[in-house]
Computed example of a mutant assay.
Amino acid sequence: MTKVEIFDPALCCPTGVCGPSVDPELTRVASSVFFIEKKGLDIKRYNLGTEPGMFVKNKTVNQLLHEKGTEALPLVMVNGEVAKIGEYPTNAEFK
């Protein structure tokens, strides 16, 4: 089974609806992740602000953060390999 991990920058919430204005990109990603989870597929999101240990624990993510700083985020890994740096998957890529 494919395992997808999304390492988000520090966010107040992953849905994009918690700030003074709605972030449509975060809303799109949150919806996509929700539907993928409902299908029983293995997808996880980690927030730098609330789960920094996951960023330290993953050696690849840790190294990219040291090299590129937070510009590396969001970072998407598929089966332990880097798939995207600095942007979320498109809807087509989520499919």
Rank of each mutant, 00 (worst) to 15 (best):
H66C: 07
E71L: 13
I43A: 11
D8R: 04
P24H: 08
E93L: 05
P14R: 01
D8T: 02
V56E: 10
H66E: 07
D42Y: 00
I43H: 03
T27D: 05
K68M: 13
K68L: 15
R45D: 03
N91Q: 11
K59A: 05
P74G: 01
G19D: 11
T90G: 11
E71K: 13
P20I: 15
Q63Y: 14
T90Q: 07
N79S: 09
F94T: 10
N47D: 08
S32D: 09
Y46N: 06
V76W: 02
Y88W: 01
L65H: 10
L64I: 05
A30I: 06
P52S: 01
N91D: 15
L64K: 10
K39M: 13
Y88G: 08
A72K: 09
F34R: 14
T60W: 06
K59Q: 07
K39T: 06
S21E: 10
T90Y: 06
M77P: 00
E51Q: 15
L11A: 00
T70R: 14
V82F: 12
V82K: 06
N58A: 05
Y46H: 14
T50K: 08
I36F: 14
V17F: 12
F7S: 02
L75H: 04
V29I: 13
L65D: 00
C13N: 02
K95Y: 13
I85F: 04
C13A: 10
D23F: 04
G80N: 06
P52N: 00
E51S: 12
G69I: 07
P74H: 03
E71R: 12
A83Y: 01
G69R: 10
N47P: 06
D42W: 00
T60C: 07
N58G: 04
I36C: 11
N47E: 04
N91T: 10
F7W: 08
K84G: 02
E5L: 13
